[in-house]
Structure formats: structure tokens, C-alpha cells
């Protein structure tokens, strides 16, 4: 277990160093004065912060909705709705992320809120799907034993079902968050800020250096988060 942690720690360190190096390279050796004016350390830091905030808020919202929804849809009294809800969320997932963002603009106007709502909707499916799969995967005999011994339904859920489904739920969150880090670039298109700003700006002034920075940082961010989830996966595997 500590081996796993150590290697995750090393990975996170390496990716962080790469992110700092990439930024440093653009700041210290800009292509020209235009890039020098656009890309400064504080600016990149601010955009990274915005990016992280958008991802974090949308992901937390998605966890807070998809996990309880999954718990509910695996109760006997709600089973009848499960196929319809899953079908609906599945269909939503087939809408391209850019279109989701665009539709959200139609409803909510522009700004970070719009981006957060769009990403939240987008992150629902992997978490919901994995929550359902995880809970359905709990061995029937285990549940029968728990009920037969006199555990109340709430206790069965808390002490048996959720702990056993947790590795899959965490895997769903991992997928959602890593995908969201990439999709959060779209926030820049609706005035929500984030590292997408660098890509748009770099593209507008035709400076490849800026575009590379705007694409590289989210990529490294996704790798870091993924490495952190390695530890979380280990912790929940029991």
C-alpha cells in the first residue's frame, strides 16, 4: 500500500514540476512581446485556480446528486424508475459537450455558473452508472445474511452496501473528474474563464506557444488528479 502511495506521490511531483517548467518556459522565453504581455505567472495561476474551481464545483455537485440518486434507484420501491432514469441520463451523455455548454448558455446566459452547470450534467452519468453497478454487484447472499440477522435497511446500506460499492463509485468519480478537467476548457467559450482562455487567446493571436500552454496545463492537471485517485482507489478497495 505504501508502495502505491509513494509511486503516486512521485507521479504527482513529476507532473507538478512539468507544469511549472512549462509555464516557466513560456514566461521566461516568450515567442515575442505579445506573448510576454499575455502570459505572466500570476495570470496563469489565476486561470489555473478558475479551472480547478469549475472542475471541483461541478464534480462535487455531480457526486452529491448522482450518488444519492444511485442509492435511491437501487431501493426496491424505486426500481421501476431505474431503466427510465438511466436511459435519460445516457441520452444526455450522447449530446456533445460543446452543445451542452451552448444549450446551458441559452438557459443561464454566460459566465462560470453556466460552465459549472453544464459540466455537472456531464459528470452525472459515469458516477450514476458506477454507483448503480457497484450496488447491484453486492453479493445477494451477503445482503440476505445481513437482513436475516436483523440489520435495518439503513444499516445494511451504510455498513454493507455502500462500503462494498465504494471502489466502483470512486472509479466513476475518477472518470467524471478527469473528463471534466478536459471539458472545463469549454468554460472559456462562455466567459467562464479557466485555462481555455489561453487556448482562445493563443489562437486569436496565432501564437502556438500560448495554445500549447493552455492545452498542456489541463492535461497535467488531469494526470495529477488521476494519480491521486490511485491512492483513493487503494484506500477503498478494502
Amino acid at each position: 500500500m505504501t508502495d502505491r502511495r509513494l509511486s503516486a506521490g512521485l507521479k504527482v511531483g513529476a507532473y507538478l514540476a512539468a507544469a511549472v517548467a512549462l509555464t516557466l518556459y513560456v514566461v521566461e522565453w516568450p515567442q515575442d512581446s505579445l506573448v510576454a504581455r499575455l502570459v505572466t505567472f500570476p495570470h496563469v495561476l489565476a486561470l489555473t485556480g478558475q479551472h480547478l474551481a469549475i472542475v471541483a464545483l461541478s464534480s462535487v455537485l455531480a457526486i452529491l446528486t448522482a450518488v444519492p440518486l444511485g442509492l435511491m434507484l437501487t431501493r426496491d420501491w424505486a426500481r421501476q424508475w431505474t431503466p427510465r432514469v438511466v436511459g435519460f441520463v445516457n441520452v444526455c451523455q450522447t449530446v456533445p459537450s460543446l452543445a451542452v455548454v451552448a444549450l446551458a448558455v441559452g438557459l443561464l446566459g454566460i459566465g462560470a455558473t453556466t460552465a459549472i452547470v453544464a459540466l455537472w450534467l456531464y459528470a452525472l452519468l459515469p458516477i450514476l452508472n458506477n454507483t448503480l453497478t457497484g450496488l447491484d454487484g453486492v453479493d445477494a447472499a451477503t445482503l440476505q445474511a445481513a437482513r436475516g440477522m436483523g440489520m435495518r435497511p439503513g444499516r445494511v446500506l451504510r455498513r454493507i452496501e455502500v462500503p462494498l460499492a465504494l471502489p466502483l463509485i470512486v472509479a466513476g468519480v475518477r472518470t467524471a473528474v478527469t473528463v471534466n478537467i478536459g471539458s472545463a476548457i469549454l468554460a472559456a467559450f462562455v466567459g467562464g474563464g479557466g485555462l481555455g482562455d489561453l487556448i482562445i487567446a493563443g489562437n486569436n493571436i496565432s501564437r502556438v506557444q500560448v495554445v500549447v500552454l493552455g492545452a498542456g496545463l489541463p492535461m497535467l492537471m488531469a494526470l495529477i488528479v488521476d494519480a491521486l485517485f490511485d491512492v483513493a482507489a487503494e484506500e477503498t478497495a478494502g
Binding site: 451477503t142 440476505q144 445481513a146 440477522m149 436483523g150 440489520m151 454493507i160 462494498l164 478494502g238
Partner: peptide, 21 residues
């Protein structure tokens, strides 16, 4: 109450159903 009843009755099944975690 079924919960009270079951807490006072031992229950063993073929699949055992031990909690793996």
C-alpha cells in the same frame, strides 16, 4: 417487530454471506 425478532434468531445460510470488507 421483524428487526427485534431477527436479532434474537441466529441465521446461517449455505453461501455463508460473510461481509467481505
Amino acid at each position: 417487530d421483524p428487526i427485534k425478532l431477527r436479532l434474537n434468531i441466529g441465521y446461517v445460510i449455505q453461501e455463508i454471506g460473510l461481509f467481505p470488507h
